[in-house]
Design a protein around this nucleic acid. Structure first.
Lengths: 139, 139
DNA sequence: GTCCCTGCAAACGGTTTGCACCCGG
DNA sequence: CCGGGTGCAAACCGTTTGCAGGGAC
């Protein structure tokens, strides 16, 4: 993991390592607040501002991906590879979706004069468990 | 336009008509604040709460689409048809993109047990005019 | 009369900022 | 020293909510 820090010229401070480690190993798509609370539990001196700072630094360094999925809070994803996101409209759960076959085009590319660096696909619907629950109820 | 109101059972109040009309005819992807300011200019009594109210009612009625493109403010789109969005990372401009060929799949659908009602595609990059400006500068 | 809609102001939640401090190079 | 990184609190901004009217049916 530290290799990323070295490559990006970021100083690997304890806080940054902690943030990176949490996002990488914990509930995928953690919000900044979740990260803050986790960090703060282990080191009560860690502040919100620092967590936001670290998250943004890591995003800028390309070690994390930031996605706005529900219009509420930004979510951070240690999975840098090409994939999409599914958001359950009932419970708010977020799940990774394998890149779809035949995505139509591959970024980066030029599209009608625009430079398209990348793209994200967000699917909205009802997750498996919510679906099961609702079918049980409708029986 | 009023036909949509009738169909959806929404009362066509002056405020709602004004909101609908603004979003339909003005800078695509207006933010709630832009809408509020425009409405308020013509009718200084119109309040923020009402604008938000109208926007949400119209979204729920399916007459507008709400998209979170930049993590700042929600944007509202009178274009209901299938299309995607491009966000310029330089100037923040939002542009409509025709649905891509070979989207890979068509919603609604069932995907690994999930019900996928719809999906949105957001492209990030540099718009044509920003690109031109930067090329000029680098010459 | 009832219910939906409106207007106002205050609250809220996520995020950012200003500033002082500290630590490593 | 100098500069980046941190901690704290206050500000900020988009949005939501509570509540008191008011109009349409």
């Amino acid at each position: 993991m530290a290799v990323g820090f070295r490559r990006s010229g970021l100083r690997a401070t304890p806080q940054r390592l902690a943030v990176m480690e949490y996002v990488a190993h914990h509930p995928v798509h953690a919000t900044a607040d979740q990260v803050y609370r986790a960090i703060n539990r282990r080191d009560p001196r860690a502040s919100r501002a620092t967590v936001y700072n670290c998250l943004h630094a890591l995003v800028k360094a390309g070690l994390l991906r930031q996605v706005m999925l529900d219009g509420q809070a930004a979510r951070f994803d240690a999975n840098i590879g090409q994939h999409h996101h599914f958001v359950c409209g009932r419970c708010g759960a977020v799940e990774d979706i394998a890149p779809m076959k035949a995505p139509g085009f591959v970024a980066p590319a030029i599209l009608d004069g625009r430079y398209v660096a990348d793209y994200e696909v967000i699917l909205h619907g009802v997750c498996e468990s919510c679906r099961a629950r609702e079918q049980r109820r409708n029986k």
